[in-house]
Every structure is written in structure tokens, then in C-alpha cells.
């Protein structure tokens, strides 16, 4: 699956636009995990932990979006946008990873 944030694909011909595909993932909606991350902050472990969690969440969201595109028979997603949104939460760090784009079928 080809992913692109651009509106067009160079040297490729888009033969079908399938429409919007999206995927979401959450991290941090766990009060106990948040509390422990606060403890880990003392030994500078929090940054790494959050980085890993954010990457995992991003990959999960993209994976969900790709499987939707595959259902349409698409082989690419263009106009891809990724956003990270804080939804608050009990400790103020429930982060939503939101990805969306336009599913397309292209040929070389």
C-alpha cells in the first residue's frame, strides 16, 4: 500500500478514487499506567515510554486505515493526514492518533 501526503502521484496514473478512509488509535486512557509513568519520569523513562506508545498508536491507526482501503481494492492512499489530539482524560494525557486520506487505485 502506497501512502502519500500529496494530492497526486508522480509517474503513476490514478484510475479510481474510492473516497475517504480513516483510522484511529488511543493512548494514555489508563489511570494506573499514567500514575506509573509519573514515577518513571523521575528516572527519565517516561519520554521513551511515550515515544514508543505514540509510534505503536500511529502504526495501529495506519493499519486500520490500510485495511479499509484494501477492502475497496485500493493500492494507495493519497492526501494522507496524521494528527495527534489530546482528549484530556483523567491525567490529562489521553492522546488520539487520527489518520485519514483518500483511497485510490493506480497503475504505473
Amino acid at each position: 500500500m502506497l501512502l502519500s501526503s500529496t494530492s497526486t502521484l508522480d509517474n503513476k496514473t490514478i484510475i479510481k478514487y474510492h473516497g475517504l478512509v480513516h483510522g484511529e488509535s488511543l493512548i494514555g486512557a489508563n489511570i494506573y499506567k499514567d500514575l506509573f509513568s509519573g514515577v518513571r519520569d523521575v528516572v527519565e523513562g517516561r519520554t521513551t515510554a511515550y515515544k514508543e506508545e505514540l509510534e505503536n498508536a500511529r502504526n495501529d491507526a495506519i493499519g486500520a486505515m490500510e485495511s479499509k482501503a484494501e477492502k475497496y481494492g485500493a493500492n494507495g492512499i493519497i492526501g494522507l493526514k496524521i494528527s495527534y489530539n489530546n482528549l484530556g482524560g483523567t491525567m490529562g494525557n489521553t492522546i488520539l492518533v487520527n489518520v485519514y486520506g483518500t483511497a485510490v487505485t493506480f497503475k504505473d
Binding site: T8, Y17, G19, L20, Y72, I78, L80, Y100
Partner: peptide, 17 residues
């Protein structure tokens, strides 16, 4: 099925050729 409701939803900034 949001894409099957008769409106083509595009996240593209420029209109496709």
C-alpha cells in the same frame, strides 16, 4: 458505508485531474 452515500469524499487539496 460512508463512501457509498453518493458523495465522493476527498482529502486532497487539489482537485484530481
Amino acid at each position: 458505508e460512508m463512501n457509498g452515500l453518493g458523495v465522493l469524499l476527498l482529502s486532497l487539496e487539489y482537485p484530481p485531474e
